[in-house]
Design a protein around this nucleic acid. Structure first.
Lengths: 106, 106
DNA sequence: CGGCATACTTCGTGTTACGATGTATTACAC
DNA sequence: GTGTAATACATCGTAACACGAAGTATGCCG
């Protein structure tokens, strides 16, 4: 899909990926894959951004000698999802504008 | 609306604004205003980009001593709109993913 | 003349997605 | 025990892009 179209969807998609259960980077990518593909560098950038914005919290866990950072959504993060859902109505309006067919004005 | 969410919609919205009738910058902004707000600098950047991508053609007209550049959509531009409409199904899928409610997994 | 609407242009900036690359461990093949 | 892949996170540089600010120029109103 068009990269520009993905912007604005990515942050919220990542929040959506952890909204029911805490998860970590590698797992998030796998979970999102059927819906949105994103690279590791992109994901970690997003996670850091969301952490700075206090939309999620992080906790480090050692797993098989490897570091794992589990991300947990905050109330602010959930609010971000709801905000997106409201914005989506505007998206639909724009979509209808783009798809309109003005049959008059031959 | 979130600026990131607008990306990917703007180019196509501009094409949609001229798809039924040739138009010029100032008019395009007015026409789009009920659906999408964008600044002049943004619009003219987009128009130049779309011209380079051969999605529209330009013709200059003098009107009341002022220059007016009329933009005309090309076949390639129309195809871009159709491509967006196809992409939109993916957007809807992502939207449903973000809005899902997994009531199990208590 | 001042102020506003029309109309297009240029410049600089901040946000951002991504590829490339790096570090480090486990797992498995041969 | 060497090579390769998967797991897992991090950093750097870059290119695309929307926008505010500012500029150029004309016509109109008072």
């Amino acid at each position: 899909m068009d990269i520009q179209l993905k912007r604005g969807l990515l942050d919220v998609s990542v929040l959506a990926a952890i909204k029911n259960e805490d998860s970590y980077g590698y797992q998030i990518i796998k979970d999102m894959k059927p819906y949105v593909t994103l690279s590791e560098s992109t994901l970690y950038t997003i996670l850091k951004r969301l952490e700075t914005a206090q939309m999620l919290t992080v906790r480090s866990v050692e797993h098989d000698g490897r570091l794992r950072k589990y991300y947990h959504i905050t109330e602010k993060g959930r609010e971000r999802i709801n905000e997106f859902r409201r914005d989506f109505n505007e998206i639909l309006t724009i979509y209808r504008y783009i798809s309109r067919e003005e049959t008059n004005n031959g």
